[in-house]
Design a protein around this nucleic acid. Structure first.
Length: 143
DNA sequence: CCCGGAATAA
DNA sequence: TTATTCCGGG
């Protein structure tokens, strides 16, 4: 278990993208990556309910994402379409009425993995469970 | 802005 | 399969 500035991630979550067998960086993993770093708090940050985040600078997030994926023409319109594909996959959902605001779906995973934990008491454990969901999505890829 | 269909790519 | 691109519609 590694400890970041304020969020704890399991060690497997730090496996480099370039390691053999690993896929290309996924958007929602990238989002978590930005959320984890202090220097991007002016661009994207946790805000409101647990798992809820706000894209404060959509153009910049799109630019960063486009930069990572070598897609220089990336913009928020296209990035948000990719985020919308996560709705059916139950990775994300929209916080209606709040501009540029989305929320990670982790409640179910919390119940599955930590039935006795109080979600409201530990933000970093919730983020941990987001990554457990990731592990499930990736078919235990990192295990 | 936000939504989701459709075509296409890798 | 996960986006990317384009886009009509609310």
């Amino acid at each position: 278990m590694s400890l970041g500035c304020c969020i704890a991630f399991p060690d497997w979550a730090y496996k480099p993208e370039s390691s053999p067998g690993s896929r290309q960086i996924q958007l929602w993993h990238f989002i978590l990556e930005l959320l984890q770093k202090e220097e991007y708090h002016g661009v994207i940050a946790w805000q409101g309910d647990y798992g809820e985040f706000v894209i404060k600078d959509p153009d910049e997030v799109a630019r960063l994402w486009g930069n990572r994926k070598c897609k220089p023409h990336m913009n928020y319109d296209k990035l948000s379409r990719a985020l919308r594909y996560y709705y059916n996959k139950r990775i994300l959902h929209k916080t209606k009425g709040k501009r540029f605001t989305y929320k990670f779906n982790f409640s179910k995973v919390v119940l599955v993995n930590y039935p006795l934990l109080d979600m409201a008491s530990s933000p970093f454990l919730i983020n941990l469970n987001v990554l457990f969901e990731y592990k499930k999505t990736e078919n235990m890829f990192y295990q």
